[in-house]
Design a protein around this nucleic acid. Structure first.
Lengths: 148, 148
DNA sequence: GCTTGAAGCTCTAGTGACTGTAGGTTTTAG
DNA sequence: CTAAAACCTACAGTCACTAGAGCTTCAAGC
């Protein structure tokens, strides 16, 4: 294993993210500053790789960076209570559940829009009509929080 | 019906969005500029309300603003072909399907993380462990990888 | 007609989580 | 020793809003 002295590009490839993302994480203090060569290039070891991997994995699960920051702090204090980490994950699960539910209803509406589209002219187009008239929806999706 | 001369706040409430959002849509040219009172306040009629409703509905369905812009243009030329609108909706459906699939796998991992969490100390915490070790995943979520 | 408070106005900056670009320097393979 | 790839900093841009400062206008009650 090339445990030490890994340049940033190699680290990026090894965890599947962009070089700039790593620099960004360092900039906002999510990753500790890397060691530098005489020419000021970053060099990483296994500890950094693991931490970055943790961050990326949590990001893929949809955790926002503040939550990840908290999880990282928690992971460091080995004897602290698990309940906080548990709570963060639970909140994340609830957010995921909400998003899934919303997307499923959106999907059914899109499918319905496409299935019933008989006209080949805009004035008969179900897609446009459905979007224009909220009343044509089966379900109301205007839950609350705008989601990205 | 107060068909004409509706101020921005009332319009915002009637479609369930923020006042700033409406001004933003006007600014980026998604909504045509409103009529103004002598004192330069915006006043809206039914046509504006319908257009804004269309936009909000499409946003709730996950359409990005450029796609909505295209749909609005399409809806205007009443005799153009429906295929383009259809294509946009179809692409959107595919995106929604991908997102649902991803979120479902994320959900199952989050549930697994929480279910198997027996330790009440961080060192036994499944949540932290799962995030730390990518190998504990059932499925890999790293959709695309610019890997060697 | 006058007052008052809610609602409106513009303009600017901030959000989250990156991504891209310009212009220069360092490393590394041949 | 050279040339190309990878690296560096610093800053601007993305998307779709959201928030705030500091001011003006509107509508209702008296």
């Amino acid at each position: 294993m090339n445990d030490v002295a890994m340049p940033i590009g190699q680290l990026a490839r090894s965890v599947g993210c962009k070089v700039q993302t790593i620099r960004y994480y360092e900039q906002i203090g999510l990753l500790p500053p890397a060691a530098r060569t005489a020419g000021a290039q970053r060099r990483y070891g296994e500890a950094h790789r693991q931490k970055l991997s943790f961050i990326r994995h949590a990001r893929e699960l949809g955790f926002p960076l503040p939550a990840i920051r908290e999880l990282l702090a928690l992971a460091h204090e080995q004897d602290s209570d698990c309940a906080r980490a548990d709570g963060i994950a639970r909140r994340q699960l609830e957010a995921v559940n909400r998003r899934v539910a919303m997307l499923m209803s959106l999907r059914s509406e899109l499918e319905r829009m496409l299935k019933h589209d008989h006209g080949n002219r805009i004035r008969d187009c179900r897609v446009i009509a459905t979007l224009a008239d909220h009343g044509l929806c089966i379900e109301a999706h205007h839950a609350d929080g705008a989601d990205s």
